[in-house]
């Protein structure tokens, strides 16, 4: 097992190539594999069979938490902990509490969205077999890569290599684990 590579990487030149290659790898039944692209490619999620991102759920939780925090903060400070008469206005009203709660909704949603994106992506991860490969420089520049991981149950060094060749992949190499 020690000599087992992390996976196989193949290079593709154009966005249509990677799009069709992704459909083929998906249909071959692989689960642990990925495309490395310099920019988000329209429709590649569906071609890969990646399901819709779950970031919005985390964002929603952040938004609800932010709004609640705003309302409770203002109720606690101005109406409960130290009520102070200012201009004969009520100690608490959702009307004047709204602008601050609104801003906190946005603030907490932003943090939840970005935090959620990092958590779901497993980032930061500064060491990764893909980053060690010589291909990554081009994969972020103008090439498109397919990486199939060795831990995939369907992975077989020769069969997988044949699949990548078959779908038009070039410079197929093993990735060091």
């Amino acid at each position: 097992m020690a000599a087992q590579p992390y996976g196989l990487v193949a290079v593709f030149d154009t966005a249509p190539d990677i799009y069709h290659a992704a459909e083929r790898v998906r249909d071959a039944g692989y689960k642990f594999w990925d495309c490395i692209t310099p920019c988000p490619v329209h429709g590649l999620d569906r071609a890969m069979g990646v399901r819709r991102s779950r970031v919005p759920r985390i964002s929603l939780m952040g938004g609800i938490l932010g709004f609640t925090t705003g309302m409770l903060l203002i109720y606690f400070t101005d109406a409960y902990d130290y009520p102070l008469i200012v201009g004969g206005k009520p100690f608490f009203s959702p009307m004047f509490a709204f602008p601050v709660s609104y801003e906190l909704t946005i603030l907490f949603t932003a943090f939840a969205t970005i935090g959620g994106m990092f958590i779901l992506n497993g980032l930061p991860m500064h060491y990764h077999p893909v980053l060690k490969s010589n291909h990554i420089l081009r994969g972020l520049d103008d090439k498109f890569l397919v990486v199939i991981e060795a831990r995939d149950p369907k992975f077989n060094l020769n069969a997988t290599r044949a699949l990548l060749e078959n779908i038009g992949g070039k410079e197929i190499t093993e990735l060091e684990a």
């Binding site: 490619v41 999620d45 991102s53 959620g116 992506n121």
Partner: peptide, 13 residues
């Protein structure tokens, strides 16, 4: 690392 699984969450975020 330009992973499309990451781009998916990134685009949504």
């Amino acid at each position: 690392r330009g992973s499309n699984r990451h781009w998916s969450n990134y685009e949504m975020a």
